[in-house]
Amino acid sequence: MSSSAALDNLIDALCCLPGIGRKSAQRMALYLIDKNRQGAQAIAQNISAALDKVGHCERCRNFSDAAHCQICENAKRQDGLLCVVETPADVMAIEASGSFQGKYFVLLGKLSPIDGIGPDDLGFDLLQQRLESEQIDEIILATNPTVEGDITAQYIADLAARYQIKTSRIAHGVPLGGELEYVDSGTLARALNARQLFS
């Protein structure tokens, strides 16, 4: 409880951030209000703008301001190479490695049988439409190397096989069980280059 109700509310709100406890939230709030009001203004505006504008790309399901995201619209990137990942954070990790010039498909999850997360939740229909209507030469399955990620990859590989599309699995170098988001970019770049044909 501070001297200001508005400040208390700000602290409460900051607590929703992952890894931020009450003490850190307090420090952040005091810094923004006391030391950096301009920065605080920028955060407030950007959060509000992002909430307003950011939706999902109709082609790849990644976050996007428009119907199609900047990566999908980028003519310099290869259309024939499609990398399937679980989360937008995985796209960021691969982009940071600078080793991939194709396009993405973001599942926004993985098959989780016991949680009832199935193909409908992961946009398999949309993916299938794209495999059907686009000229895709290769799919790189970059789901996480967990049991659920492997099963997801297997089903997408089966799907791709129906359209005679080559699939490969990001491999070797990504420590088994290590999630892409937490793998350093050098390792990730090597893993992408050393991908193996999926059987």
Partner: peptide
């Protein structure tokens, strides 16, 4: 767990 070196152990089966 998801950052650990032994992350692969935390799997069903």
């Amino acid at each position: 767990a998801r950052k650990r070196r032994d992350a692969a152990y935390f799997q069903t089966g």
